[in-house]
Design a protein around this nucleic acid. Structure first.
Lengths: 255, 255
DNA sequence: CCGATTGTGCACACTCGTGTGCAACTTAGT
DNA sequence: ACTAAGTTGCACACGAGTGTGCACAATCGG
């Protein structure tokens, strides 16, 4: 082993014990994963960082992607596709519930959603993402319009603007989850409630709607992708009379 | 004039007709202004760009700031200070109104607020901004707690988390203003209403509160800083019975 | 009108990140 | 066991930004 030049960069570069190396494609996937993770923290993290997080060398990246941009594009299209696809399946007669579902669905994609959304506003990829996301956004806009028309959503903000604001809070909740920590169950509920609030519902309405709609129940997603309803009581045992404690979504006690 | 190397960069560099040069300090101010403007568009815009927007050369910047970082720091501290100061003056017995005022106040600082907020989440300046903004945030948290205690705000989200979400939507509205265009009056109302919605109020409650509270009326701010109430009717002439049309905040007609 | 400020033009050194070329080594697949 | 794909280490060319030095022009403040 010749002169191992110890890179005194930020990355302590644990050159030792290199990953046992699985198959090719797995590494590619790992790269995309790493990219998502890194870009979530720093929107323009270096290839070096990404490669490291994937357990590879910067040089090796070029064995999978011709350009850093290609990698990013992969992350983006992949993300936008996933998000778009899952959102387009949402459907419900009640626009409010559909909006809640929109939030819940987004919640399942926290990582992807955050990066994707970030890129949707910055740099030369705006278009790419915007286009890929357009169908999903269009659907949300339509849902909002329908809700307004049916009289179940607020009428004081133009539907399209409202749709954007809903998307906004949803992402705010995702951010909250990233920065402050928010367990799966709480996040699931919070996105929905927040979205509904912006949509015009009062907090009790929102809570009741979420609590009283089986479709909005929290589901545990198994690794493979199967989902199952998870109704293990929760903290709110006896809530029926709109009385004192009304807690949900929280985590930290009100006092 | 020797070989003028025409920089084929993004900036077309209109070297001609250089600004008639006012006094020294004015340029420094111009630089900060330019920085705010540029950074608002691209969080890591180059000194070249900033200098150009200020009508100066990159080289000249170093006559005012030793480092790019110094300039940024100036922008940040200046912004955080302004925002913090203005927010700390807010006061009202009704927590809901105080929250609305919080939004309205933020609205007056769109430019500053956006950049500052952006930096509050990215890079090594997080601390700087976070610290400078802490008092303001603490106040908002306190207000939210009070509101919850008084029973006028939602009880289903932990106060501190709720405070962060309120800050979030407020900034979302500022972003909406930047990207989609939003005139002063509409923005003023929208921030307040959005904040109140997240705080738990139903949309009619929020609208009524905003419309029925003189302190929340839109004020035209003259260049110097003096503010005056501006109550030129508006579009909603006959609104008293909670009947059909209820428009405010909008701009675009509901159909 | 003179002198100190302030800004301009260019040149240069340095850093960081990207993209390539190559030789040597490791591992999966058959 | 042999081969081909996949990786690793360098080395090098480049581009974009930052930070500095210096001579020279523009301008304000008296």
């Amino acid at each position: 082993m010749p002169t191992i030049i110890e890179t005194p960069t930020e990355t302590p570069a644990p050159t030792r014990a290199r990953a046992p190396r699985r198959d090719a494609a797995e590494n590619r996937a790992a790269l995309v994963e790493a990219a998502i993770s890194v870009l979530n923290r720093d929107i323009d993290g270096s290839l070096e960082t990404i490669a490291a997080e994937a357990g590879l060398t910067r040089r090796a990246v070029y064995g999978h992607f011709a350009t850093r941009d290609d990698l990013v594009r992969e992350v983006l299209t992949q993300g936008a596709a996933r998000i778009g696809a899952s959102i387009l399946t949402i459907e419900h007669a009640d626009a409010r519930i559909e909006i809640a579902l929109y939030g819940a669905t987004l919640w399942l994609q926290v990582q992807h959603a955050s990066v994707t959304a970030e890129f949707a506003v910055r740099g030369p990829h705006m278009r790419l993402v915007a286009e890929a996301l357009e169908p999903a956004r269009a659907k949300l806009r339509a849902t909002v319009r329908r809700g307004v028309h049916d009289g179940v959503l607020r009428r004081d903000i133009a539907p399209d603007r409202l749709a954007r604001l809903i998307e906004g809070v949803a992402l705010d909740v995702l951010a909250e989850a990233t920065h402050e920590g928010l367990d799966d169950r709480a996040g699931h509920t919070l996105v929905m409630v927040a979205a509904l609030s912006v949509a015009g519902l009062g907090w009790r309405e929102a809570d009741d709607l979420v609590a009283g709609t089986p479709e909005l129940a929290y589901r545990v997603v198994s690794a493979s992708g199967t989902a199952s309803v998870n109704d293990d009581g929760g903290t709110d045992a006896g809530r029926a009379d709109a009385g004192a404690a009304h807690d949900t979504t929280t985590g930290e006690p009100t006092r």
